[in-house]
């Protein structure tokens, strides 16, 4: 009995030391990692819609309004779509214009099969999304008619579906979010003008 207690305590000591070490390293690196990730997200947004300022709208569906950095005119919206692919969630950051047509997309996080699903991050795949409307967001294998559809990556139809369908769903959500939001600000805006 005594030996078990002794062994257990030694193991406990190892665990405590390891956990303490991990907690310490985590406390130092966490803010650094977060800021790097935020900076990356900011950079990706800028790449998708250049020369703009971004205003974050938080809610059920968080998105960013892109305004021209000079004129302040609304250029479009940026959001992150997510859906399960073959090996886990596939996150895509996408920019749409005011009419919800896709400007550009960027697959920012995925753990798909190397050599097949990972091709979803390549421009060869993402470029075909440019200019697509919501209706055109359908994979060719699901009955889409080229060129008004998304061509599936060879050997990675599931990944293609995850990207395409997540975008489709997110744009629909974005639409309803923007519309409900637009009703209130416009009214207040009108009132302000009257007050003037």
């Amino acid at each position: 009995m005594k030996i078990f207690l002794q062994l257990g305590l030694i193991l406990l000591a190892f665990c405590v030391v390891a956990t303490a070490l991990l907690a310490y390293v985590n406390s130092i690196t966490k803010p650094q990692i977060d800021s790097i990730q935020q900076k990356e997200a900011e950079e990706t947004r800028r790449k998708l819609i250049p020369d703009s300022d971004f205003e974050e709208i938080q809610g059920e569906f968080t998105y960013y309004i892109a305004k021209d950095s000079k004129t302040g005119e609304v250029k479009g919206y940026v959001f992150t779509a997510e859906k399960n692919g073959y090996n886990g969630p596939v996150k895509t950051m996408a920019a749409v214009d005011k009419d919800y047509n896709i400007i550009a997309i960027n697959v920012i996080q995925q753990t798909e099969t190397p050599g097949l699903g990972t091709n979803s991050t390549q421009p060869k795949f993402t470029d075909q999304f440019k200019g697509k409307t919501v209706e055109q967001l359908i994979v060719d294998k699901d009955g889409g008619v080229p060129p008004n559809c998304i061509k599936a990556i060879t050997g990675a139809t599931i990944t293609t579906r995850a990207v395409t369908n997540s975008l489709k769903e997110s744009i629909e959500m974005l639409k309803t979010q923007v519309q409900t939001k637009n009703i209130t600000p416009n009214e207040t805006g009108a009132k302000e003008e009257v007050n003037k």
Binding site: L7, I10, L11, L21, L22, V25, I28, T29, I33
Partner: peptide, 30 residues
């Protein structure tokens, strides 16, 4: 390390070590 619990000790050491490498790399060598 006592012989009887060497395997769990290895697991802890390796897992802790890998996590530390992972976190420091993410923070300083993005």
């Amino acid at each position: 390390t006592p012989d009887k619990i060497r395997i769990p000790v290895y697991v802890i050491v390796i897992a802790a070590f890998v996590s530390i490498v992972d976190m420091s790399m993410a923070a300083y060598l993005p």
